[in-house]
Amino acid sequence: MPITPPPRGRGTASNPHNRFAPRHSQAEDDGWSQDVPPSRLTEVRAEAAKSIITRNQSPDLPFDRSINPYRGCEHGCIYCYARPSHAYWDLSPGIDFETRLIAKTNAASLLEQQLSRRGYVCAPIALGTNTDPYQPIEREQRLTRQILEVLLRLRHPLTIVTKGALILRDLDLLTALARQRLVSVHISLTSLDDELKRILEPRAAAPAARLRTIRVLHEQGIPVGVLCAPMIPMINDSELEHLLEAAKDAGAQSAAYMFVRLPHEVAPLFEQWLQAHYPQRAEHVLSLIRQSRGGELYDSRFGSRMRGQGAFAELLARRFALASKRLGLQHREAFELDCSRFCPPGGQLALL
């Protein structure tokens, strides 16, 4: 069966049923219908969220709370482990995830309410853990900026992970936060190859733009690191040392990496992508992933889901450790943020 290429600027042409759908339908060609190409238009639906801070107890993550102002992500990264989350809203993890987006329009006001609750204990909030806070729709929605304004006013620390150069629009807020040790940023850098970026992360910023973002953040005194994620065998793993070197040259102070994760519906979408773009090496790529995941395409166990196991994963970890040490790059968690400045809504700010 031929693989349908994605519309230009999208990661996939497929829109598989989500795993929670009570019934599935299958289209059959009766000779009368005409093929309708998948929509490439972005639809944004407003949502009044009931809660904005998400908690986790994962030992694999360097934070215990996060905020995602958007559901779905227009960047369209084919490997995105967050794609299956779209199934919770009866949408497909396929092209729906890239085109049918949800904006939590009350995010900033809801955040202020939650931070004012009695008994709230301050700890850094992570932005960009499920979908990118600086995806293209942030240009009009400005939800991430509104969140930054609340956190700056209340002196609450945060961390940001993004592959969007749009973050530079908020330099005024980020520099103000950085002066009080309230923010650190990690720029996700997957490849230095523009063509690979185009098919792997269609609407994300170009590699040169991400390196420029690291450089500008560093020059403005904002703690910035690089996140090499995901590392995919036989696709971009050979670039690991080059990614770290380029990021270091641009001003990155810390680094982290992750092995590719293919939970639930992501695995078949990624397989389709391989067959469309790398048919001759597809089986080799999948074989190396299985070797690093105990014979499966995904392993959800804590301790191994971010790094993998086996010879290939161990070699990747060793390469990262050696290159980071040689370049003087610290661990991602090295940036220490100040929680002592937090002043909840209605609280008394310190005079000094």
Rank of each mutant, 00 (worst) to 15 (best):
V266Y: 00
A267S: 06
P268E: 12
L269P: 00
F270Q: 01
E271F: 04
E271D: 00
Q272K: 06
Q272H: 09
Q272D: 12
Q272P: 10
W273I: 03
Q275T: 07
Q275R: 02
A276L: 11
A276R: 00
Y278V: 15
Y278G: 14
P279F: 10
P279L: 10
Q280H: 15
Q280Y: 06
R281I: 09
H284K: 09
V285I: 10
V285A: 08
V285M: 07
L286S: 05
L286G: 00
L288G: 03
L288I: 10
L288W: 01
I289T: 01
I289E: 02
I289M: 05
I289S: 03
I289K: 01
Q291T: 07
S292F: 04
S292N: 06
G295I: 09
G295K: 09
E296N: 13
E296F: 02
E296K: 15
E296V: 11
L297S: 12
Y298H: 11
Y298A: 06
D299R: 05
D299Q: 09
D299S: 08
S300D: 14
S300V: 11
S300Q: 10
R301Y: 13
R301Q: 13
G303D: 02
G303E: 05
S304H: 01
R305P: 02
M306R: 08
R307K: 12
G308Y: 03
G308T: 01
G308S: 01
Q309A: 13
A311M: 11
A311C: 07
F312G: 07
F312S: 08
A313H: 04
A313N: 04
E314Y: 11
E314S: 12
E314P: 01
E314K: 14
E314A: 07
E314Q: 14
E314N: 12
L315K: 15
L315N: 15
L315W: 13
L316F: 03
A317S: 05
R318Y: 00
R318N: 00
A321W: 13
A321N: 15
L322A: 11
A323L: 05
A323R: 02
A323F: 02
A323E: 07
S324K: 05
S324W: 07
K325G: 05
K325V: 03
K325W: 08
R326I: 03
L329S: 08
L329C: 10
Q330M: 13
Q330P: 08
Q330T: 15
Q330S: 13
H331C: 08
R332V: 15
E333A: 11
E333T: 05
E333H: 06
E333S: 11
A334W: 13
A334K: 05
F335W: 07
E336S: 14
E336T: 08
C339S: 14
C339G: 07
